Amino acid sequence: MKIILVGFGVIGKGVLKVINLKKNHLLEKYGLDLSVVAICDSSGAAINKEGLDLELALKIKEETGKIASYPEFGQNIGIIEVIESVPADIVIEVSPTNIHTGEPAKSYMLKAFETKKHVVSANKGPLALFFKEITGVAKEHGVILRYEASVGGATPIINLAKETLAGNRVKSIKGILNGTTNYILTKMEKEQLDFNTVLKEAQELGIAETNPHQDISGLDTAAKLAILANSIMGREVTINDVVLEGITRITPESLLMANKGGYAIKLIGEVTDKKLEVCPKLVPIDHPLNVKGSLNVAMFNTDLANDIVVVGTGAGDVETASAILSDILNIHQSLKK
């Protein structure tokens, strides 16, 4: 199975590490022979229809920051042109997320569909804004779109609901879908520190971005919630439909007061047939949603299985790549049927 990797940042590098690590296992257990024939970043691309050396690609990126510096096969070429011209089975789309326009990732995905390539994406932006259009175009061209890694990183939220809980009606989903805000609130609660102090520490540790606005405002959670609402609940919404409040107004005093009453304060995203909101909420201290640190958690309320809770890592290169790998395997097994 031939792969084009679009985006060679933290997640893209994680994808190559995981493919390298699991190559023999995938071949022996699933009969899946993965070959990365193109890697794209903002500098251009490395293209070899026989398959690129992944360790060399990682080394070149580390040393030069540009995949176009890959010896012999590196070239200055646009990503759309790569998707159009390079024969492949799957495009893995992990370019930087834009939750305001969805571009250029949306165009990469649509071009992949038009050229009859399946897509595995970790990109929230296009799906949070244009879910119906993107899934419709994939269906129109008879290709598969998978996007487990777009919500919750390594935590299997979408596939759990759509496959393991198939046959259930999911009545509501609520959870913590952003590890950065959960880390900040946990640290504020535990050490009685103010928001700005903990945010600065999280930035120094690399847990929070240099510009943390999307996380602390709740926008990141809202994007993920819109994807869950569309893909699992069957709603037709975008990130712009989410009622939103972030965590910047939470104080150590409010956390202490909540604790004394037997509660924690968490940034909770919740979707039902009528509700679509992200805001800080009181969560009982012994409740399954009260996870600590940078963990993610999702709770499904269903008609048959009642409440089902999944907890896991919401970020990280190899961790997120594990979700991408599960989607690749799903496509491989679907095509064998």
Rank of each mutant, 00 (worst) to 15 (best):
I232W: 02
I232V: 14
I232A: 10
M233C: 03
M233Y: 06
R235N: 12
E236C: 08
E236A: 11
V237L: 12
T238F: 09
I239N: 06
N240S: 07
D241A: 03
D241R: 08
V242K: 01
V242C: 01
V243S: 05
L244C: 05
L244D: 11
E245C: 12
G246N: 02
G246F: 00
I247W: 00
I247Q: 01
I247P: 00
R249C: 04
R249N: 10
I250E: 09
I250Y: 15
T251S: 09
P252M: 15
S254V: 09
L255K: 02
L256C: 07
L256P: 04
A258M: 15
N259M: 03
N259Q: 12
N259S: 14
K260D: 13
K260Q: 11
K260C: 13
G261L: 12
G261F: 14
G262V: 01
Y263E: 09
A264V: 06
I265H: 05
I265A: 11
K266F: 04
K266D: 12
L267S: 00
L267V: 13
I268D: 00
G269L: 09
G269M: 12
E270D: 06
E270G: 02
V271H: 09
V271D: 01
T272S: 10
T272P: 05
K274F: 11
K275L: 05
E277F: 08
E277M: 09
E277Q: 13
C279A: 04
C279D: 14
P280S: 06
P280A: 03
K281W: 15
K281S: 05
L282K: 11
V283C: 14
V283P: 05
P284S: 02
P284W: 00
P284G: 00
I285N: 06
D286Q: 09
D286H: 15
D286P: 03
D286M: 10
H287A: 04
P288S: 13
P288F: 15
P288A: 12
L289N: 04
S294R: 07
L295K: 14
L295Q: 10
N296A: 15
V297R: 00
A298H: 01
F300K: 01
F300G: 00
N301S: 02
N301Y: 03
N301R: 13
T302C: 02
D303K: 13
D303G: 02
L304D: 05
A305Y: 12
A305Q: 13
A305M: 15
N306D: 10
D307T: 08
D307C: 10
D307E: 06
I308S: 04
V309Q: 06
V311F: 06
V311A: 05
